[in-house]
């Protein structure tokens, strides 16, 4: 369990557009152990998807640039691999589930073909065997294999997402990147998909990076959490620890914004303000302007990572005093 599968060190990603440079991910450090499920939580635009896509190196080509950092996967730096070697990792060792199942499948190929294609790419087997395994995968995610030769438009959203999951798991990847796999689905299907991912994960022993902004999902499925804000990981630790002893004001704000069933309050408590413009990030703490507990020093220098408990780090200068 303690073996490191993936280690991201000082990752920085920028998007270069004609007008400006978007600093999407800045100095992110993240470790995923074997068999672990880690949740990446944060608001839209925080850089969660960019982190996941950097791991697979499938950022949108002309504008995105990985500026620095290392992504060690089983101790090899993925960023140093050639494109050809990287192709052998994609879909084979590391697979990804995308946010919107409606658009994630090629509309003019059969779903079976799209699964079999991935299998045949990474295994030395005949076309027929690949087809057979694709059928098995379909059955595994609860789609009868008679529907092998149907097209994506003939499936519902939930079923499409299951096809995407079948595709991602078809080569028994060691790491699964799930980018908001349930956001586009309605609540009942969400639960189905999550349950299925959970049981498949147990059966195949896959590590999962689960990107979500649903803290309920995190509590349900993850072993540890990393909270992403404005391209940085501001707090990370085990699920239990973070849910009980959240220390970063942003994480506290996230929990605070959840509706409470047992309280009489009728209004939600959102975090005030907006995320800073990623083309023009503040020099100090990124959360300074929205932070209810900000002090003058926060605006001056970026806060350090402070370890408040074993494995639980917080990017905030205020917590230092608490720990001392």
């Amino acid at each position: 369990m303690d073996e490191k599968l993936l280690e991201i060190r000082n990752l920085a990603v920028e998007y270069h557009t004609d007008e400006a440079v978007v600093y999407a991910v800045n100095n992110v450090n993240l470790t995923v152990k074997k068999g672990e499920t880690i949740g990446l939580v944060g608001e839209t635009g925080a850089g969660k998807t960019t982190i996941a896509r950097s791991i697979l190196r499938i950022l949108p080509p002309p504008t995105a640039r990985i500026v620095s950092g290392e992504i060690l996967f089983n101790s090899t730096d993925l960023l140093k691999l050639s494109e050809k070697e990287m192709q052998k990792v994609r879909g084979n060792k590391i697979a990804m589930i995308f946010q919107d199942p409606m658009t994630a499948l090629n509309p003019i190929e059969t779903v079976g073909f799209q699964i079999a294609e991935a299998i045949q790419r990474h295994n030395k087997i005949t076309h027929f065997e690949a087809e057979k395994r694709a059928c098995d995968m379909l059955e595994m995610v609860g789609i009868p294999m008679e529907r092998y030769s149907e097209y994506p438009h003939q499936f519902s959203g939930g079923m499409k997402q299951r096809v995407v999951i079948a595709m991602a798991l078809s080569c028994n990847p060691e790491l699964l990147l799930a980018d908001e796999p349930t956001t586009a689905l309605d609540v009942t299907i969400q639960a189905q998909v999550l349950d299925m991912m959970e049981s498949l994960k147990k059966r195949l022993g896959t590590s999962v990076v689960l990107i979500t902004h649903d803290l309920g999902v995190v509590a349900d499925t993850c072993d540890s959490v990393a909270v992403v804000y404005a391209g940085e990981i501001v707090e990370r630790g085990t699920v239990e620890h973070i849910f009980d002893f959240a220390a970063h004001p942003y994480t506290l704000g996230l929990f605070g914004s959840l509706p409470q069933l047992d309280s009489k309050e009728r209004r939600l408590k959102p975090i005030k303000g907006m995320m800073p413009d990623p083309t023009n990030l503040p020099p100090g703490c990124r959360f300074y302007e929205r932070c209810p507990e900000a002090i003058k020093e926060c605006a001056e220098a970026p806060p350090p990572d402070v370890e408040v408990a074993p494995g639980h780090t917080v990017k905030c200068i205020r917590v230092k005093g608490d720990a001392a």
Binding site: L56, I58, Q87, R90, P107
Partner: peptide, 11 residues
């Protein structure tokens, strides 16, 4: 998106 999916398959 499905092109990204295809790339993510390692094609």
């Amino acid at each position: 998106d499905y092109i990204t999916t295809a790339r993510a398959k390692g094609l």
